[in-house]
Simulated scan of single mutants.
Amino acid sequence: MPPTPTIDVPATYEALGLSHIRISHHPLGAPTATPVVIVTLNRPEKHNAFTPQMADSLTLAFNMFHVDPRVKTVVLTGAGKMFCAGMDLDIGFGDGEGRAADFRDIGGRVSLAMHRCHKPTIVALQGSAVGVGMTMTLPAAIRICHEKSKYGFVFARRGLTIESCASYFLPRLVGFSRAMHLITTGGVYPPSTKHFGDLFTEVLPDASQVLPRALELAQDVAENVSPLASSMSRALMWEGGDSPEAAHLLESRVFHHMIGQRDYKEGVNSFFEKRKPRFETDPREGSCPDYPWWPELNISREYSASKNSKL
């Protein structure tokens, strides 16, 4: 078996020079990585249109967060008035040459990195988003948006099919009927339309409220939620049993593992002692022995922190 590739984790994310995104600590300017980090799509002059460089940067960032025990929650937002205008059509997707079997869509790489990251992502859509600007948010745990902005899955209107693993995530989030309407019309809608269902868990009247609210939620999660319990619970939701009985057996197995972990004891003790918990278990080390319990296609290798990481 080939060795597991490693990844360098920096002492500070704010010094990274990643293309087309910016990573900030919360609070801003903290000298080392904080429990909450902010990832900002940073092409405001192009309405944060998606590029291969942005995809590479986002994929690398989520891989780093995955192996960095200092990071508890990730907030993803956009610079300027728009969250993301979709793919930068001046760059395009290539010419369709080469073998289809060798092609991997760049949005899908970002979605899988976010999905596989043990740390939950909260998306602050402070402005409008279409295309990959929408599909790449689907693996996130929470999406908060602005009520006067517009959102849509416009692929069919550009002669394209959905990507970024949206055929898996979208119908599970909004239901097949709503998902079919969204991808069939390719329409752009306000977040209040019934076609989105509960895709956006909060819709705020002022764009300036979106990021602060996402950070408020992220801080609460980082301070009060076990990263291990959160990661295992989200995995149970996405990769659970295919019947009530199968779900019961799987949940029981994972629950049995969890009650033997330090985080359970800390959660109970902090409750009785009326204090904030101090959850310290790294999800990569505390996951149940058979995690992942589902067959996972080998499209990329798992990363671990390298010896050069500044942890």
Rank of each mutant, 00 (worst) to 15 (best):
S167C: 11
P190T: 12
G197V: 04
L160E: 04
H195A: 11
L182K: 08
G152A: 03
T184M: 14
F155G: 07
F196S: 01
P205D: 01
T184H: 14
S167G: 12
G186E: 06
D198E: 11
L170Q: 10
F169S: 05
F153H: 07
G152I: 02
F169R: 07
I183A: 05
T193K: 05
F155E: 09
F176D: 14
T161N: 14
P191V: 00
A179K: 03
S177V: 15
F196G: 02
F196M: 01
V154F: 06
A156R: 14
R172F: 08
P205W: 00
V188E: 13
R157T: 07
K150N: 02
R178W: 02
K150E: 00
G152P: 02
Y189W: 09
P190K: 11
V188Q: 14
I162K: 02
F153R: 06
R178I: 02
R158S: 05
F200H: 02
E163A: 14
S167K: 12
H181P: 06
S192W: 09
L204H: 00
V203P: 02
Y151W: 06
G197P: 02
I162S: 02
A179C: 08
I162E: 03
G152Y: 02
T161M: 13
S177F: 13
H181F: 13
T161V: 13
R158G: 04
F153W: 09
G175Y: 06
T201E: 07
I183S: 05
P190W: 05
M180P: 03
T201K: 09
G187T: 14
P191C: 01
L173E: 11
A179P: 04
V154N: 08
E202D: 03
T185Q: 10
K194F: 12
T201S: 09
I162A: 06
L199G: 05
R157G: 05
L173Q: 13
H195N: 10
L199D: 04
I162L: 07
T201P: 01
R157Q: 09
L182F: 09
L173A: 13
Y189V: 02
P171T: 12
I162N: 04
A166F: 05
Y168Q: 11
V174C: 11
G187E: 15
V203N: 00
S164N: 10
K194I: 12
V154C: 08
F176K: 15
T184S: 15
E202V: 01
G175P: 08
P191H: 00
R178M: 04
F169P: 04
E202N: 03
G175L: 07
K194C: 10
M180N: 13
G186M: 07
C165E: 11
A156V: 15
F200C: 01
H181A: 11
R158C: 06
T193P: 02
A156H: 12
F200L: 00
A156T: 14
T184N: 14
T201G: 08
F196I: 03
T184V: 13
G152H: 03
G175S: 10
A166W: 01
S167N: 14
P205A: 01
L173G: 08
P171S: 12
A166E: 03
F169Y: 15
L160I: 03
R158T: 07
T161L: 13
S167F: 08
R157N: 11
L199E: 04
P171N: 12
F200I: 01
F169G: 04
T184I: 11
P205R: 02
G186P: 09
K194Q: 14
S192H: 13
A179G: 06
A156L: 12
C165P: 04
K194R: 15
T193V: 08
S164R: 05
